[in-house]
Amino acid sequence: MSKPVAGTLVVGVGNTLLGDEGVGVHVIRHMEGMDLPAGLELLDGGTGGFLLLGPMQEAGRVVLIDATLDDQPTGTITKLRPKFSSDYPRTLTAHDIGLKDVLDAFYLTGSDPPEVTLFAVTIPEPSGLTLDLSKEIDAIVPEIARQVLEEVD
């Protein structure tokens, strides 16, 4: 069962200076060039942390895209429905500090938490400082976008 597209916010988070770690932002940039259902909003969340609370609260439904380093093969896209911050997979950089407060704050402030779907993308061990995605991750950006659209449709 899915809700109407209107009021849905797709947020890609990550640090674009860290190559694959910024895959969430790259997916947003990719989607900006696509025909999207009316009312679907995109946000380059970058390393926004605390700054994401407002937009996420205002949306009724949030789709997050983030990179993770787990034991799965590179390029694995895992769809999760996390509830508390501790349900989220480990991310690489510092940007998760504010994000965790943001997520738990929904419960603590008594406001209705948005329905959150997280697409966690397994990335390879970082090998250097770069603005570019690795070949493997770059190749699955359209597939991540497709799954995001399928999710919100």
Partner: peptide, 21 residues
């Protein structure tokens, strides 16, 4: 404060076109 800060930073989006960054 968590609720309040999200309002103030709208100043960045107003003058800078978007927020974050």
């Amino acid at each position: 404060a968590l609720e309040w800060q999200k309002e103030l930073v709208k100043i960045h989006a107003i003058f800078g076109g978007k927020n974050p960054h």
